[in-house]
Every structure is written in structure tokens, then in C-alpha cells.
């Protein structure tokens, strides 16, 4: 960063031109895009901190004159969803109850699938894998009715285990793909060495492969946490009345209104619902990139 005059090597020739019309265009485009995304967020945050009187009076871009967290408290604990008025927190805890087992089990199942497909190569493994991938490209709606029927026949329809099982099923293709590709970069000799050492299917998985899979486990968890948290349709259909996830509750809060719409409460509830995926992205962005980049593993 210091002046290079004293150094022996002096750069020659034209400096790389950093400012061109194309560059300016690009930055303008990026700025507009950022504005486009950030403006609604800004409006939501400021609105959620205003009282209803202030909302009625002021413009939507104005900063809150007397900031208050009352709308947040109301959204969290007393907002009405249909007949009950326990706030969005019910949905939050429902979502947590759905999320934790779904993420753990779907990542674990994907890891086992990827491991088995990469190293044990059972007969028909390629066919199986192709089918699984095909499944990932068929719209979810196609499966809903058959799955409802199957769940009903099995007598689990509208329960927590039901929605967890559904999330595991829909998570399998992507988690399997992630782990299969990750394990494809692991030298097969490692697997062979473990077999010579006498390790079987589970021991190789648990003691050799899983401990070296941290980056891809993190990637899979991020994808699954955000995907499952943001899910609406599956939760609505399969979770049952008592387990409706936060997204569905949010919809109920926003739509259950008599009289004037409490925009500040709605904004707060929305931000609360979005906060989990947002937090995951902020905290794990670095890990995510590292995991995606970790293709090959050095022994």
C-alpha cells in the first residue's frame, strides 16, 4: 500500500482502467437492485417500530418519531390467528419442533444415501440415483394428493411425525446429491483401507466418513433449515391444526383482521418469521461458501 518508488520492480505500461462506461452501468444496476430489495425491508422495519397513530399520519418512508417495541411484543405473544390470540410464538415453536427432527434426519439420511451410493455401489444404484434426481425436478404439488392418501391410510395424517416424514422425503434428493458428490471426491482407497481394518458399513460411515464431512454437513443443514423453515404448503397440508408452522400462522395473523389492519404488528410478525433464515445466512455464509468449494478432500 506504500509508494512503490523505492522498490526495484516498477509497474510499466498503462494502468488497468478501472472506470469504464460498462463498470458504471454495472454499479448503477447493482445499486438499483440493492435498493429494490432493501426498500421493502426498510419500510417493514420502520413501520414495525411505529404506533398505529403515527402510521396513519406519516409517510411510509419516515423514520419512527416515537419508536416502540409494542407491536413486536403483540406480534409475538397476543396477535390473533383465527380464534386463538397467543401470537406468532405458537407458530415459532411449532416450526422449531418440525425443523429440528426434519433437518437432523434428512441430512443424516442424505449422508447415508450418498455414502452407500458412492462406496458400496449396490446393484441398481445408478438407476436409483437417477430416479431420486428426477423426483427432485417434479413439482411438489404433484405428490401432495397421493401423500395425503398414504398418510391417511397409515393413520398419521395431520401429526408432527407426518410433516417430519414429508420433509425428510422431499429433502432426500438434494441431500443425497450433495453427499454423493462430496464422497465422490474422497479417495476410494480410504474406504478400502477401512474394510481391510475390519470396519463394516456403519462403522466406516460413523467413524471414517462422517467425521471428515463437516463442510458438506453444514451446507446441507443450511439448505434444509432455510427450505423447511420457509415451507408453507407442506406444513399447511400435513402438519395438522396443532402443529401449523410459523409461515402458516403468519398468514393467519395477517388475514385474521376485523376492523383496522395493524400494519405494525403484521410487519413485526413477518420480520420475526423471516429472522431464522436471515440469521442462518448471516452466520453461516462463510461456511456455506467453504463447504461448496470443498470438492476434493486431501487424505
Amino acid at each position: 500500500m506504500t509508494a512503490p518508488s523505492a522498490s526495484a520492480v516498477v509497474a510499466r505500461g498503462a494502468r488497468p482502467r478501472t472506470i469504464t462506461a460498462g463498470r458504471i452501468g454495472l454499479y448503477v444496476f447493482l445499486a438499483v437492485s440493492a435498493l429494490y430489495v432493501l426498500t421493502p425491508l426498510y419500510v417493514m422495519v420502520v413501520t414495525s417500530l411505529k404506533s398505529m397513530e403515527e402510521i396513519r399520519l406519516g409517510g411510509i418512508f419516515a423514520l419512527p418519531a416515537a419508536p416502540t417495541v409494542a407491536p413486536w411484543v403483540e406480534a409475538w405473544s397476543t396477535a390473533c390467528t383465527g380464534l386463538t390470540c397467543d401470537g406468532i410464538q405458537v407458530g415459532f415453536w411449532n416450526s422449531v419442533a418440525i425443523l429440528v427432527p426434519s433437518v437432523i434426519l434428512s441430512v443424516l439420511a442424505g449422508a447415508i444415501n450418498g455414502y452407500a451410493l458412492s462406496f458400496w455401489r449396490p446393484r441398481g444404484a445408478n438407476v436409483l440415483f437417477t430416479l431420486l434426481l428426477l423426483g427432485a425436478f417434479i413439482p411438489v404439488q404433484v405428490f401432495i394428493y397421493p401423500l395425503v392418501r398414504i398418510s391417511a391410510v397409515l393413520g398419521v395424517y395431520g401429526t408432527l411425525p407426518n410433516i417430519v416424514a414429508i420433509h425428510i422425503i422431499f429433502g432426500l434428493p438434494i441431500t443425497t446429491l450433495l453427499f454423493r458428490n462430496y464422497y465422490a471426491g474422497v479417495p476410494v482407497e480410504l474406504f478400502k483401507a477401512a474394510r481391510v481394518d475390519g470396519a463394516g458399513f456403519w462403522r466406516i460411515f460413523l467413524q471414517v466418513m462422517l467425521p471428515m464431512s463437516t463442510p458438506i454437513v453444514i451446507v446441507a443443514c443450511i439448505l434444509q433449515v432455510t427450505g423447511i423453515w420457509n415451507d408453507f404448503i407442506l406444513g399447511l397440508v400435513f402438519a395438522g391444526r396443532d402443529n401449523l408452522p410459523m409461515t402458516v400462522q403468519l398468514n393467519n395473523v395477517v388475514n385474521t383482521t376485523t376492523g383496522e389492519r395493524p400494519y405494525n404488528v403484521h410487519m413485526a410478525a413477518t420480520i420475526l418469521t423471516a429472522s431464522v433464515p436471515l440469521l442462518v445466512y448471516f452466520v453461516s455464509g462463510r461456511w456455506f461458501v467453504r463447504g461448496i468449494a470443498a470438492g476434493a478432500v486431501k487424505g
Binding site: P187, E189, L190, K192, A193, A194, V196, Q207, V208, P211, M212, V297, K298, G299
Partner: peptide, 12 residues
Amino acid sequence: GMVFQSYALYPR
């Protein structure tokens, strides 16, 4: 007992 070209040591 077997020894491989790529060492194949358990990394963890």
C-alpha cells in the same frame, strides 16, 4: 494387511 499409493490415512 494392505498399503495404498494414496496413503489412505483416516484424516480425522
